[in-house]
Simulated scan of single mutants.
Amino acid sequence: MTGQIRPLRFGVVAPITTDMPTWRDQLRGLADSGLSTVLMPDVPQWQPAPGPALAVAATITDLRVGTWVYASPVRPAWITAWEAHSLSVLTDGRFEMGIGTGRPGIADQLRELGLPLTPESQRWSQVRDVVTALRDLDGPDLHTPVAMAVRGPKAQALAAELADTVTFVMPQIETRAATTQRVQDFDNRRGAELALHVPVVGDSVAAFMAAPDTDPAAVRAADSLAFLPSDPAAAAEEIQRRREEIGFSYFVFGADAAGALAPVVAELAGR
């Protein structure tokens, strides 16, 4: 990591898990909260496609919108890049492309969809192809921010080269010390923004951000950074600690936790 201290910002993963009017009302409730970004997962079986959903979201609020995250094996690289570039244009530059190689079990999903089973060793080449095509489409006058969800050395090397934002894919019961070491080992000489995916807030597990059988007590007991307390004062203290000690400045949690953490966002966003 670098010594750069970035201002704090906050994103919410807001999947469409109810009817459309309820989802629209949820987004309107987020509009003036101090949040940075409304984020959409990429899970074909469970909800509408992220691109159209984010285009609608961008008309409901003035917040930034983004994918959290595109699964690279699910669609051809150029199509992903075209959609991302188009979202940047349609939102006047408010779109952020999150991308990774897919959730655990992506091979089963590809079989169900009748798509090629890209070997895991080749999936980061697909991500590179997406970013390369996106930069060509953006041209010299537009830069769509790219967030990469990374795990192993190959993924981290690509993110160190190309990503604007990096989030680390880690076991939800990984200890604070192990995550800290993971970040310290990352070659961040370019000063990419470091994002933390936080699926557990208090006793709640965010939809689409963790497995349904996730045990909040076990995550909390592990001193895992996948957990934040629901008490606003404790959460604010913990967020600032994670930035000062590790370098995380972008915190992503579920939309259902936005109410509990609203005082935190209001106090810390942009600081």
Results as ranks from 00 to 15, higher is better:
3 G>V: 01
6 R>S: 07
8 L>P: 01
10 F>R: 08
13 V>I: 12
16 I>N: 01
19 D>F: 04
21 P>W: 04
22 T>H: 14
22 T>Y: 00
24 R>L: 13
28 R>H: 10
33 S>Y: 01
34 G>A: 03
35 L>E: 03
36 S>D: 15
38 V>H: 10
41 P>H: 09
50 P>G: 06
50 P>R: 07
54 L>V: 11
55 A>S: 15
56 V>D: 15
64 R>G: 05
64 R>A: 13
65 V>S: 10
66 G>D: 09
66 G>L: 10
73 P>L: 08
76 P>Q: 14
76 P>N: 12
77 A>I: 08
81 A>P: 12
83 E>T: 02
93 G>T: 02
95 F>N: 05
103 R>P: 01
107 A>V: 09
109 Q>E: 15
110 L>W: 00
111 R>E: 08
115 L>P: 02
117 L>C: 04
117 L>I: 10
119 P>I: 11
122 Q>S: 13
122 Q>N: 10
125 S>I: 02
132 T>Q: 15
134 L>C: 06
138 D>Q: 07
138 D>N: 05
139 G>K: 13
142 L>Y: 05
143 H>N: 09
144 T>P: 03
146 V>H: 06
154 K>W: 00
156 Q>I: 02
157 A>G: 12
158 L>Y: 10
160 A>L: 00
161 E>F: 06
164 D>M: 00
165 T>V: 14
166 V>E: 03
183 V>A: 06
185 D>S: 14
187 D>E: 13
192 A>I: 02
198 V>Q: 09
205 V>M: 10
208 F>Q: 13
212 P>D: 08
212 P>C: 01
213 D>W: 06
213 D>R: 12
215 D>M: 09
219 V>S: 06
220 R>A: 13
225 L>V: 05
225 L>Q: 03
233 A>K: 11
234 A>S: 14
235 A>W: 14
237 E>I: 00
241 R>Q: 09
242 R>V: 04
245 E>N: 00
248 F>L: 01
249 S>F: 11
253 F>P: 06
255 A>S: 13
256 D>P: 01
256 D>K: 04
259 G>N: 12
263 P>Y: 08
263 P>C: 02
264 V>F: 07
264 V>D: 08
264 V>S: 09
270 G>D: 06
271 R>T: 14
